[in-house]
């Protein structure tokens, strides 16, 4: 069995290692001028940022990592889209994905993952169900879903804010607010991942015809 480990026992060595890691990472930014490589390196820098928070080693740290993770993911998505735009990569023909598995498997796998995600619920459940929907939208062609998904995600956001105000103003109804926030985070994470699935060249078939 592990002996009694107190939080913060290894704080200083941890910070020392992180400082060295930061110096190494920053050196790479000094030497690397390729845009795509720098985009990937920023992903590494998010890991370093989360590590510093993790060394706090309390429940608070876990609650701070979640916003940190989400913020970095969100910025990475936006930045990647800027990269694609500035390089004008939109016109690259999509790879030929007319494989039979990609037309029969998505509904089954997506259904399994979504149901499992609902059982898990919360943030992780949303991620699992979202992966299912991402796969579904990646493989099958669904054009008009984008606006619908965005609208639903907007409502989930409003639900969350509403739950927060219940917590602040009517704390006696905390149970209602927890359930509301829990389902809102599920819907929101699911839809954000599904949106990534819909972000693919629309004219998949026509373009593959040209090639």
């Amino acid at each position: 069995m592990i002996g009694e480990i107190m939080a913060g026992d290894h704080y200083l060595p941890g910070i020392a290692i992180i400082c060295v890691a930061i110096v190494i990472l920053m050196t790479t930014f000094f030497r690397e001028y390729d845009d795509l490589h720098r985009l990937i390196l920023t992903g590494c820098s998010e890991v370093v940022a989360l590590c510093i928070i993790a060394f706090l080693a309390t429940d608070l740290a876990e609650a701070l990592i979640l916003p940190g993770l989400v913020v970095s993911l969100a910025e990475l998505v936006a930045l990647s889209e800027i990269y694609i735009n500035k390089e004008g990569l939109g016109l690259v023909p999509a790879p030929d994905r007319t494989i039979e598995v990609f037309s029969s498997a998505p509904p089954i796998i997506a259904a399994i993952l979504v149901i499992y995600g609902i059982v898990l619920s919360g943030f992780t459940g949303g991620a699992v169900a979202g992966v299912g929907l991402l796969f579904y939208y990646l493989c099958l062609d669904h054009k008009e879903r984008f606006a619908l998904l965005e609208t639903v995600s907007g409502y989930a956001w409003v639900l969350w804010v509403f739950a927060f105000f219940i917590f602040m103003m009517l704390p006696a109804y905390w149970f209602f607010a927890v359930m509301m926030a829990g389902s809102a985070i599920f819907v929101k994470v699911t839809i954000k991942l599904a949106l990534i699935g819909t972000m693919k060249p629309d004219q998949l078939l026509e373009e593959t015809d040209h090639v």
Binding site: F29, S45, I52, I53, E75, L76, A78, I82
Partner: peptide, 27 residues
Amino acid sequence: LNAAFEYGIVTMIAMIPLFGGAAIVAA
């Protein structure tokens, strides 16, 4: 857009000192 990309990279690197600073304060 090129400029926006550079600023975006700086913004993302800035998460290390920003959240790192807050975490060191908390610890």
